[in-house]
Nucleic acid binder design. Structure first.
Lengths: 195, 195
DNA sequence: GTTTGTGAAGTATTTCACAGCC
DNA sequence: GGCTGTGAAATACTTCACAAAC
């Protein structure tokens, strides 16, 4: 899925004040071939003008809408240890339309604390809170040993999308999508090229 | 590149005391089809026995060697802001054979400080230090606006592999490999499925 | 009976290349 | 002349299915 990259690049291009962009120029910025970009876009509609290119603002709005980025998404974070705290106080989600609206932890010492401006709730209230708030995206930042259990409970609670920071390959039903963030795997795949 | 996943799964299986594993069992654990696993492995050699499966310890050692994971890798971190500090104090790299051996920052207030047990060095000494220590892997944790410049200097310094946490698509020559860690892009690709 | 390793078949993804439009 | 949108061609990746080995 390259659309989010296009959105990011178009946002930058718009900020520069450029009004029209070709697939060639866009591709240069994000290391994707022009044909690839045109093919990707053609799957969703016809956004360009021959001989001219794409109107940056128009394409940006169209793609943002397709991705559902023209609204704010509430996100729940499970696990407020070292990593969870870093996520909760990460300032990069807000500007992109994601707002961390709930945080959970199993450790009673964490529960009740304020982290990144929100109150940590006990994990046994997770289903209740997620259903009340209608949160459908969760970030899992618990130890590997507890991650699958947490994922199972998130799925039961109606979560539809998960960012998983735990080093496991989580099992989920088909209606739930998972993206793994796994720096160790990334490092380990790099070492292959260093010999 | 799925080999690192196989290594991780095999390590767990070994810890459980299981000595032999089939592509079927291994696949179940990490959500990969048995045929896929056999095909992946066949590219590097013949590790199994028909009717039996794979000797866990033997396959684990073979894959670790192929990936270069049978040694320790020194890593340099550039940027010791919020994110860089989290990376420097992340306890998950060491056990996997990665040791953060140098840290750099452009901010003079950070330079000289000890973070995660190592001394922060000025970014202008980066090339010198990287060449002295022979570090070939770097983690980039600087703001987007400075990331490409840092990447360029890393490439000049002989770095061959980069984990990039900055939200940019870095330009590097073909002999350098980059892996991006980008939670915002991951989130944005998830929202597509929620409508 | 079980499970590997692997050609062949089947899908998916990417690139080519050009008619059509600006 | 420049650039899109898109079928066709080319690549890449995955799954099938089975002979061979245990």
């Amino acid at each position: 899925m390259r659309l989010p990259q296009y959105v990011r690049a178009l946002t930058q291009i718009l900020e520069q004040g450029t009004e029209v962009v070709s697939s060639q120029q866009l591709g240069q910025q994000i290391q994707v071939t022009p044909a690839q970009i045109r093919k990707d876009l053609s799957y969703f509609g016809r956004f360009g003008k021959q001989g001219r290119g794409y109107t940056v603002r128009y394409l940006l709005e169209a793609l943002s809408h397709i991705l559902g980025l023209d609204r704010e998404w509430q996100v729940g974070v499970v696990g407020v240890g070292r990593l969870g705290r870093a996520i909760l106080s990460y300032p990069g989600f807000g500007p992109e339309g994601f707002s961390v609206a709930a945080a959970f932890d199993a450790d009673p010492r964490q529960v009740g604390q304020m982290v990144g401006g929100i109150m940590v709730q006990p994990v046994h209230r997770m289903q209740e809170v997620l259903e009340e708030t209608g949160i459908r995206i969760a970030i899992v930042a618990v130890p590997a040993s507890e991650a699958q259990e947490v994922v199972d409970r998130l799925v039961e609670s109606g979560i539809r999308a998960i960012i998983n920071y735990a080093p496991i390959s989580a099992q989920v039903p088909p209606h739930v999508t998972v993206r793994n963030i796994d720096p160790v795997l990334a490092l380990q795949s790099l070492t292959y090229y260093l010999r």
